[in-house]
Design a protein around this nucleic acid. Structure first.
Lengths: 225, 225
DNA sequence: ATGGGCATGATAGCAATACTATCGTAAACG
DNA sequence: CGTTTACGATAGTATTGCTATCATGCCCAT
């Protein structure tokens, strides 16, 4: 099984974490720790302790914890983009392609993984809980100019293009897709923590099927001419 | 003009900020400062300096800045709930009522304000940028048990009930409404900062009309039998 | 093999943050 | 008139976020 490697925006790191053992430990352990503590309570000192290294060494890879978060999330969307390519390569019809992407977006297929690439299930959780914090800041515009949101925007653009293919006259493809993306991220969180905000039931074993069902309904009804 | 007062969840403050001059200064100045600095860089020390008081005094009103944020945001949703009551009181048809609520949700009517209640436009901005940070934390469940999300949930429930009235057999009223609420919050932010994620154009003077148009389209198409 | 570069570990230090505690005073309240 | 109370003033502490310095041990080129 090939090891997944994506070239993340170089402005996000000082030293490429993929090039060294320590760097890879920083990545895998930060995913675990951010999940465990939440991003607010995650610090480089705690991370360093967890990997048996020092704060100073972590700072040699990442300017600060916010850049590290951006790195992880960029990686996630690059991976999602790759998944989209994989699941759509044999499909012609835009509707089929969109459905395949939706399924890829919602289900984690990680089980078979060989344990050496980042823990994908944990990374997905991290994105669910922390993604919005990457752009709801006072330096969005600067980060955006550096291109740190490109992988996410690429994913959105591809889906919007599929909407366009299905109904070229629909006036809000991008708005609809970013709505879908947000919802995909949030509804499972609601199901678990704020159940009165959703009709999806957590822990039924098919909460992502319910969500997929809702999203398909919403998309196709909304764009139908 | 009556001064707007809502009874915010009492667990959110140590001393009711409405009962004193200092308390009211804390509220109005924190809205301004959080908007200016972003919640991450907002501190009680800066707030105290801005109102000519001390850190210790602010801590006598709020346990920490996160509780203060929750207070502001609860106040906002209580206010929105009140607006919903006002704009729907003369309307019978659920569809008309829902449309009125949507309009209330999107437009700021603050202009006529007398300048003594919280700056509503600023508060709306604050909610747009910081709302999700209130529940995307490791202590959601505990906060939720204390009822700090009730005002938001109330607003969502009322809209979901309207959906139910319009089409009782639609299976996802809460999911649809929480999707709408998120979108209402985010799309204008996208228009301003991440325009490739939306079709809505900022600074055209009618961006909220475009958004209203999209949301109505999405809602009514999605729920139609 | 040898000397130079380079990644890391070790340690220190500093300014800011997130609080907590104590004390005096002046107004408010009964 | 005495007492509560709200507030300001000051101090202090642990943690965070970050920078700097130095020694060591490894690899790579000569």
């Amino acid at each position: 099984m090939p090891i997944l490697q994506f070239s993340v925006n170089q402005t996000l790191y000082l030293r490429n974490p993929n090039d060294s053992v320590l760097g890879r430990k920083i990545i895998s352990e930060s995913i675990r720790l951010i999940n465990q503590l939440g991003f607010e309570h995650f610090t480089f000192k705690k991370l360093a302790r967890a990997i048996g290294s020092t704060e100073a060494s972590v700072y040699r890879y990442f300017e600060n914890k916010h850049r590290l978060l951006l790195y992880l999330i960029d990686w996630y969307w690059l991976w999602m983009d790759y998944r989209f390519e994989v699941v759509t390569q044999n499909l012609k019809e835009p509707k089929e392609r969109l459905n395949a992407c939706l399924k890829a977006l919602l289900t984690d297929d990680s089980p078979g993984a060989n344990g050496h690439e980042p823990n994908l299930r944990a990374l997905k959780n991290l994105v669910m809980a922390e993604f919005e914090k990457t752009y709801l800041t006072k330096h969005v515009d600067q980060d955006n100019r550096e291109g740190v949101f490109l992988p996410y925007k690429t994913v959105c653009k591809k889906l919007a293009a599929l909407i366009r293919e299905i109904n070229p006259s629909f006036p809000f493809p991008h708005t609809l897709i970013s709505t879908v993306m947000l919802t995909a991220n949030h509804q499972l969180f609601y199901a678990e923590h704020l159940p009165s905000l959703t009709d999806i039931k957590a822990h039924t074993g098919h909460s992502d099927t319910q969500l997929e069902c809702f999203l398909q309904l919403m998309i196709y009804k909304t764009i139908e001419p």
